[in-house]
Design a binder for these strands. Structure first.
Length: 778
DNA sequence: TTGGGGGCAATTTTT
DNA sequence: TTGCCCCCAA
């Protein structure tokens, strides 16, 4: 039987409540009721550091909300409790549940970023900021990086903006300043990035803007350097809780630490096995060494799982034990045994989608609701085959992704006007709106304005430059256009003291945006609808925050993420990435593309054990989302980036408990072979006849090949031969403990990557091939 | 100033 | 294969 609350992370609580014959609503005196031993221990903990290691599906939210409620009704006032989460969703959920427990809405529940944004507004002087700073989002940040690249006059040959952005963000997460980066730079590239980072910071400062990382970084620095303020805050927040502690980065770690330095009442919850944001700067060591950081810490494990069947849990548990970086934890459940976890081998990605969709059809015909079914992918690009086939099967589906509401063009456009009203230094916003809607101010005019601003001393911000249009020396037409734009901005500047809704509506009409939207509404009504939605959002904000200012509203919108997940599609199959799946649960789960290189995702040149462990955790997270039915699939051939390649099943599959798994697919023999030859890898009796593919190995299915005997002679630039693709040059080679990877560029320019053991490549000596018309580009 | 076409890269993305 | 970005033509 499948219930209909799969989307609701609170299902668990409902189940728990049910199993203990309690109401959903607990009077304060009942906060200890119906708890298991470890749960009770956590709920009743009061003073000192505490680590709650909460396994997947073990009832964590229930525990922390009850503890907060208990604190708030005994030793503390609600406003003396600070609960920090990572997502708005988690924050809202906690607020709601605390409310349900009768604690009121005075408890401080907020995301890291929202908490910091507010703190920095209030204590802007101490932090060396202006009160009206704006928050640069990802696209603003990208523009600023491009600008910085230009100013640094660096040939962007091997430095994409994305790469720079990543490096800067990582540095900030680790609390590394531009100076420190320059000092410790190893190699030319690092120095370049250090220089760009420096300029990037200058631009942000000049624009009176902070990016997301700054919110954390500046707060951490402020709390570290300003002991007086730190102390006041510590007095104010006598009990601090940090959720998803395994995902904290250095800055967040510091914030939590500084806020609790003296009273030590830091209660953290998390699960190292679900740490999947290392690539975003999160440091799993924060949770792993909590007990070292806080020697008097108490640790409690929640190991009983209320979500999945025994078999699903056994498979996931076995997988995760392969990780070294973890805290020993043994999940168990009282739930039914359930059906075996299935692993399906498919011929290619279309067969994979077909097989999954067929299975879904069967489930639906048995009365399972579409919303109880989820398909998890490692990368969004994999969703396509599934979309197509779900569509043609007439099964409603939705993709939990897409452009976040506040990242849409039309939304960003209006908000840019408002941001400029609040913060006249916000050049990125000005540049965005100067010709939106089009008003005859093109690139050339903008360049003139910029040049004028830069040439002035001190350097002007663009808004000031616009207002001094007469001094720029523009052609008559451009001069006229800029004049009316300048007048428009003056008019808008006078709006700033009114409500969010009023300001928004005025801006929409004065700027001409509304007229523009109305005009295009015939062709595409969506932008207009989005704007209408924005107006009601503003209106709602005004109602909820009678004392709120435009600035508050802008901050609010800046920190709001993608809400796609929260709304809509109550009867659709959900397609989402494994990352997006964290925290959710579904009765039926399909995990797609469990192949080497995809899951684990391998990037060349950077395969180390940490990455693999995070990938393993990602699969673990995916598997533990499933309540009743779990299916993993992989395809022998996969079309990706417009190219079909032969794949190798993921080594993670070898790490599952073989005998508990139901192995399905065109070829039945492969898994049996697995059991015989251990994890060394093996082929399967291939029904497909593809040249060069490893699925073509004749039986008996031994490992495809070992390393080539002359491996020591392989080096970058070596010439190799592939049976299907011909001659190529080795452009990447990395030797790992278990597998070696190679990348080859072929004569026609195609580049392919393989695991060397399976690649069927042979090194050839240069003089053997000179007569084969090898191009000179080699 | 706008649009279209070619070139090129291509994870994950709580905020 | 798709999607973004940049440059060029009208």
């Amino acid at each position: 039987m499948i219930d209909d609350t799969s989307f609701d992370p609170e299902t668990l609580d409902a189940e728990l409540a049910e199993s203990h014959s309690h109401q959903a609503q607990y009077p304060a005196t009942d906060l200890r009721a119906g708890l298991t031993e470890p749960q009770l221990e956590a709920v009743t903990h009061i003073n000192g550091p505490f680590l709650l290691l909460a396994g997947a599906g073990a009832g964590k939210t229930r525990v922390i909300t009850r503890r907060a409620a208990l604190l708030a009704t005994t030793v503390a006032k609600p406003w003396e409790i600070l609960a920090i989460t990572f997502t708005n969703k988690a924050a809202n959920e906690m607020k709601e549940r605390v409310l349900t427990l009768g604690i009121g809405d005075k408890m401080n529940v907020s995301t890291f970023h929202a908490f910091c944004a507010k703190l920095l507004r209030i204590h802007h002087t101490e932090a060396g900021l202006q009160h009206n700073y704006t928050i640069a989002d990802q696209s603003d940040r990208k523009k600023i990086i491009k600008e910085a690249l230009q100013r640094a006059e660096i040939s962007t040959a091997n430095l994409t903006p994305a790469k720079v952005e990543f490096r800067i963000s990582s540095a900030k997460s680790d609390m590394i300043s531009p100076e420190a980066m320059l000092q410790n730079a190893e190699g030319h590239n690092d120095r370049l990035i250090g220089r760009i980072y420096t300029i990037y910071e200058e631009i942000l400062t000049h624009q009176n803007a902070l990016d997301f990382d700054d919110l954390l970084l500046k707060t951490a620095t402020l709390l570290t350097e300003n002991d007086d303020l730190r102390r006041r805050l510590e007095n104010q927040y006598r009990y601090v809780l940090v959720d998803e502690y395994q995902d904290t980065n250095e800055a967040q770690y510091r914030i939590a630490h500084q806020l609790t330095r003296e009273h030590g009442n830091l209660f953290v919850t998390g699960d190292p096995d679900q740490a999947i944001y290392g690539w975003r700067g999160a440091n799993i060591q924060n949770i792993l060494s909590f007990e070292k950081d806080y020697p008097n810490a108490k640790t409690v494990r929640l190991e009983q799982n209320y979500r999945s069947t025994k078999r699903i849990l056994a498979a996931a548990s076995q997988l995760i034990t392969a990780n070294i970086d973890r805290k020993e934890k043994t999940l168990w459940t009282d739930n039914e045994q359930g059906d075996p976890v299935r692993v399906i081998r498919c011929e290619d990605n279309n067969a994979e989608a077909a097989s999954v969709v067929t299975d879904i059809k069967t489930l639906i015909s048995q009365g399972v609701s579409e919303s109880d079914i989820a398909i998890f992918v490692r990368i969004n690009a994999l969703s396509r085959s599934f979309e197509e086939q779900l569509f043609s099967a007439g099964i409603p589906y939705r993709i939990a992704r897409g452009v976040a509401f506040y990242a849409r063009k039309e939304i960003k456009d209006v908000l840019a006007y408002l941001r400029l009203i609040i913060n006249p230094s916000d050049d990125v916003s000005l540049e965005r709106i100067i010709n939106t809607p089009t008003r005859g101010i093109g690139k050339k005019t903008i360049d003139h304005i910029k040049a004028f601003a830069n040439a002035s001393s001190p350097r002007l911000n663009l808004l000031e430059a616009v207002h001094r249009y007469e001094e720029i020396g523009l052609a008559k037409r451009a001069h006229q256009c800029l004049k009316s734009f300048s007048e428009l901005l003056h008019k808008l500047a006078e709006l700033s003291t009114t409500t969010a809704r009023h300001t928004l509506e005025q801006t929409l009409s004065l700027s001409g945006l509304m007229a523009d939207l109305n005009q295009t509404a015939d062709i595409d009504a969506e932008p207009l609808q989005n704007i209408e939605e924005l107006v009601s959002a503003a209106s709602e904000f005004d109602t909820n925050h009678p004392d709120g200012t435009i600035l508050d509203w802008l901050t609010f919108t800046s920190l709001l993420g993608d809400e796609d997940l929260l709304q809509g599609g109550t009867d659709s199959v959900t397609i989402m990435t494994l990352h997006a799946a964290k925290g959710l649960e579904f009765p039926a789960v399909y995990i797609i593309g469990v192949e080497h290189g995809l899951l684990p995702m391998i990037r060349f040149g950077s395969e180390d054990a940490d990455d693999i462990e995070e990938e393993r955790r990602l699969l673990f997270v995916g598997m533990t989302r499933a309540k009743k039915r779990l299916t993993l699939t992989f395809a022998a051939r996969r079309m990706l980036h417009g190219m079909t390649s032969t794949t190798i099943r993921s080594t993670f599959l070898d790490e599952l408990p073989h005998n508990e798994i139901q192995w399905l697919g065109d070829s039945q023999a492969w898994h049996v072979d697995q059991q015989r030859s251990g994890t060394a890898g093996g082929g399967w009796a291939g029904s497909s006849a593809r040249s060069g593919g490893i699925d073509r190995l004749p039986s008996p299915r031994k490992p495809a090949a070992g390393l080539p005997e002359d491996i020591d002679e392989w080096q970058l630039g070596s010439i190799v031969r592939h049976p299907a693709h011909g001659l190529g040059v080795l452009i990447d080679l990395s030797r790992g403990a278990r597998r070696s990877h190679v990348k080859v560029r072929f004569k026609n320019g195609m580049e392919r990557a393989w695991i060397l053991e399976f690649a069927n490549l042979h090194r050839v000596d240069f003089d053997e091939v000179t007569d084969e018309a090898f191009g000179d580009e080699w």
